[in-house]
Write a protein that binds this DNA or RNA. Structure first.
Length: 155
DNA sequence: GCCAACGTTGGC
DNA sequence: GCCAACGTTGGC
């Protein structure tokens, strides 16, 4: 079983939306590095931190579970979708998505707190790297446990 | 809203 | 295949 961190912009899709829907497809990944990890390594039964980005409260907000392995993201063929990719062909899709199930909310762990914890700098977690734009990244067991631990601390 | 960092595109 | 220009991401 692998562990992941998935970024989402809560203004368009938040952990609360996921909770309501229980399961949602994770569409719109349009970065090759992220796609490759999702398509080739992410598997049903893996867990993922849900992370809110580009918003007022940036950080880890909860946990989800991969409930379906990667399959073609149909929004790439929908000319009305912001995720439309005119260069992608139906018989050779370029972009993929997984299905994510809601597991639980966590007490908020801000990016600022994560950056303030030396644990995440050796080895370096991509999340704390300046300029990192990966929307999907692997998380080690140690990093996972540390963030869970931090969610139980008082701020 | 600013801007640094990074990915993508396209001319050559 | 290089690299400048451009677009996007995302923290602050």
């Amino acid at each position: 079983m692998a562990l992941w961190l998935l970024k989402t912009e809560p203004d368009s899709f938040s952990i609360d939306t996921l909770k309501q829907q229980k399961v949602s497809c994770w569409e719109g990944v349009r970065n090759y590095q992220a796609r490759n990890m999702m398509r080739d390594e992410m598997k049903e039964g893996d867990f993922a931190f849900i992370y809110h980005s580009s918003c007022k409260k940036v950080g880890v907000v909860g946990v989800g579970e991969i409930v379906k392995n990667a399959y073609p993201d149909h929004f790439q063929f929908d000319s009305k979708s912001p995720y439309f990719d005119p260069k992608s062909q139906v018989d050779n899709p370029r972009w993929f998505m997984v299905d994510l199930g809601y597991q639980k909310h966590l007490p908020f762990v801000s990016l600022a707190r994560i950056k303030g914890n030396p644990f995440f700098f050796d080895p370096l977690m991509p999340l704390v790297q300046k300029g990192n734009r990966l929307s999907i990244m692997p998380v080690t067991q140690g990093q996972w446990d540390e963030i869970i631990k931090m969610s139980k601390w008082k701020e």
